[in-house]
Design a protein around this nucleic acid. Structure first.
Lengths: 242, 242
DNA sequence: CGTTGCGTTGATGCTTGTCAACGAACGTGG
DNA sequence: CCACGTTCGTTGACAAGCATCAACGCAACG
């Protein structure tokens, strides 16, 4: 996908302001006032980039709605997705000077942009905000390390199963998952090819571990079995979620 | 390796105090005074753990001398090494409550332990320390993401080449590397088997890209060729180094 | 001087990637 | 409204890269 670099608005669009409030499915994830005061709403059209590799890291971000991903490309086109970005997730913290990963919208997105220098200064004077930022960084690191284990040591089936459980962990009923991303995106997230992802999902369906209404809508039928497949010991935690 | 949980000393051992000073090969990496004041020296024997998965995250750590690694196990014994820890590296920041990864000494190690709560409080009152901690977190995240790309998308040869370049990046001459870890450790770091690591190193030697005096002492003969093999665009940065 | 741990090398096979074909869904323009 | 191209997901056949299993040499050590 050819991404373009574009924000459509740097000031709140009226229709989106309600989304700035805490998300209904998670009462604990709104930012401290010191950070919220700095945020500006922006919208990102599907396929456009919030920033690219090498861009100056001038802002931190938070997803209001829609889904995106951070990704990095090798010169020959191989791609690794660092994280999927869902409503409530923070991103853009990984950079000191320049972004090492690009961030791109997989669907139309609404995000909040926080000017980084001002946010850092605010943190210096506000222990609550400071703790909040530390927590985001910690969670991001924990997630990244968990993913190292997945990419380094798990089989294709285990990877897909852990991915489904990760998505289901934020579903209201814990079992209904809607995939906003393509098979290719999932493959690039899990270090697999899109064909392997497709085949693995088909196998899980054949074994009655999941059900698929359409390619982007599925239900976990046997969560314990899926959890056992990942051989993991702790629940999946999503990237950057405070 | 059966790791044991043991610190041999919680107060400075006379012989090690000089190592607390900035490391001779890097004048920029000593901690702010506010953090240094909280540190207590401890020694770790080879094969012992600073902490294990599930331990309460009560401290942050910094390596004074020796080398270690953070690692995570699957129930069936598969292991993923999150990072190798060298002199100057900070570790233990990834945990909010409990450690998700264990940290273990691969050689005898000297580390500094910083009580986490006191360090966090100190950070709240000290912008310099605060920025320092942010920087460590950023670098750790950048490293982790770079490693996601390696584990998810690079071939065995590319992984080994990038590993060697990573090690060489802190060598005085940029080409002489001494491997403190075993082939098995390298494999667990790169998501490969120890046999593949051994074979890949042999192939690199055969192609005159590296020279091996012994299994743990090698020299990069053709850095440009190795860099091209990784297909990466930016220099390797080591975990947690400020 | 036997034992143990580690690194190397070989033979073999499995998991996953690659290449290809096909169908469904979607948008576009005649 | 329908032909058309495009994108995406699925499935099959095949190949390759790496894992697995195994044997051997060497150095360290009690």
């Amino acid at each position: 996908m050819q991404t373009q670099h574009a924000f459509s608005a740097s000031r709140p669009a009226p229709g989106f302001i309600p989304a700035l409030a805490p998300h209904p499915d998670d009462g604990t994830d709104d930012a401290p006032a010191g950070l919220t005061a700095l945020g500006a709403v922006a919208t990102l059209r599907r396929g456009t980039a919030a920033y690219r590799e090498g861009d100056l890291a001038s802002h931190w971000y938070r997803v209001v709605s829609g889904t995106g991903c951070t990704s990095k490309l090798l010169p020959d086109g191989r791609r690794q997705i660092g994280a999927f970005l869902h409503a409530g997730d923070f991103f853009g913290f990984e950079a000191l000077q320049e972004h090492g990963f690009a961030a791109e919208a997989l669907t139309d997105m609404v995000v909040i942009r926080y000017p980084r220098q001002r946010a850092e200064s605010a943190g210096d004077a506000d222990p609550t905000l400071n703790a909040f930022l530390r927590e985001i960084a910690c969670r991001s690191l924990t997630c990244a390390y968990e993913r190292l284990l997945t990419l380094g040591r798990r089989t294709a089936t285990e990877r897909v199963a852990s991915f489904l459980l990760e998505l289901a962990s934020t579903a209201p009923d814990g079992r209904t998952v809607s995939l906003a991303m393509s098979r290719s995106d999932i493959g690039d997230y899990l270090g697999l090819t899109l064909e392997t992802v497709s085949r693995t999902l088909a196998a899980l369906k054949h074994d009655d571990l999941i059900d698929m209404a359409g390619p982007h809508s599925l239900v976990l039928l046997d969560r314990p079995a899926l959890e056992e497949m990942t051989e993991g010991d702790e629940p999946a935690v999503r990237f950057g979620r405070a």
